[in-house]
Computed example of a mutant assay.
Amino acid sequence: MADTISFARGAPSLDIVDVEGLSAAAQRAFANDPGGLTAYGTAIGYVPLRKWIAEKHGVDESRVLVTNGSMQADAFLFQTLVQSGSDVVVEKPTYDRTLLNLKSLGAQIHMVSLERDGISTDELAGLLRGGVKPSLAHVIPNFQNPAGYTLSLEKRRALLDLAGEFGFPIFEDDPYIDIRFAGESLPTMLSLDESDDKVVYASSFSKTVAPGVRVGYLVGPAGLIDDIRKLATNTYIAPNMVAQGIVYEFCASGAIDRSIATVKAALAERVDILCDALAEHLPEATFQKPEGGYFMWVSLPEGSDIDAIFAAASERGVAIVKGTDFLLEGGENTLRLAYSGVTADQIEEGVKRLAEAVHAVPVAG
Rank of each mutant, 00 (worst) to 15 (best):
T4E: 13
S6M: 15
R9P: 00
P12F: 05
D15E: 12
I16T: 12
V17R: 14
V19S: 14
G21K: 03
A25F: 06
Q27I: 09
R28V: 04
R28A: 06
A31N: 07
A31C: 03
N32I: 01
N32F: 00
D33M: 02
G36F: 13
G36D: 12
Y40F: 10
G41E: 08
G41S: 09
A43H: 03
A54Y: 15
D60S: 12
S62D: 14
V64A: 09
L65G: 11
V66S: 09
S70T: 03
M71P: 00
Q79G: 02
L81W: 11
L81P: 14
S84T: 14
S86R: 09
V90H: 05
K92H: 15
P93S: 06
T94A: 10
T98Y: 04
L100T: 15
L105Y: 05
L105C: 07
I109Q: 03
V112S: 06
D117I: 00
T121F: 03
T121M: 05
D122P: 09
K133W: 06
A137P: 07
H138N: 07
I140A: 02
P141H: 01
N142K: 02
F143R: 02
F143M: 02
P146M: 04
G148K: 07
T150P: 01
L151I: 00
K155D: 08
K155G: 09
A158E: 09
L160D: 04
L162Y: 07
A163I: 07
F166Y: 09
F166N: 06
F166M: 01
F168V: 10
I170G: 02
E172P: 05
D173F: 12
D173Y: 12
I177R: 07
D178N: 14
I179W: 01
R180S: 13
E184D: 14
E184G: 12
T188Q: 01
T188G: 10
D193V: 02
D193S: 08
S195P: 02
K198R: 14
K198E: 03
A202I: 11
S203Y: 04
P211Y: 14
G216V: 06
A222D: 08
G223H: 15
G223N: 13
T233E: 15
T235Y: 08
A238N: 05
N240V: 06
A243C: 12
I246C: 01
Y248K: 05
F250Q: 03
A255D: 09
A255L: 02
I256K: 03
D257G: 05
R258Q: 13
S259C: 02
A261C: 13
A266N: 07
D272E: 15
L274S: 07
L274P: 00
L274E: 10
L274R: 04
A277E: 13
E284R: 07
P290V: 11
G292N: 07
F295N: 14
S299L: 01
L300H: 03
L300Y: 00
E302V: 13
D305C: 08
D305G: 13
D307L: 14
A308S: 12
A311S: 08
S314H: 11
E315D: 15
R316L: 14
A319F: 06
I320N: 04
T324M: 10
E332R: 11
A338L: 11
A344P: 06
H359L: 10
G365P: 08
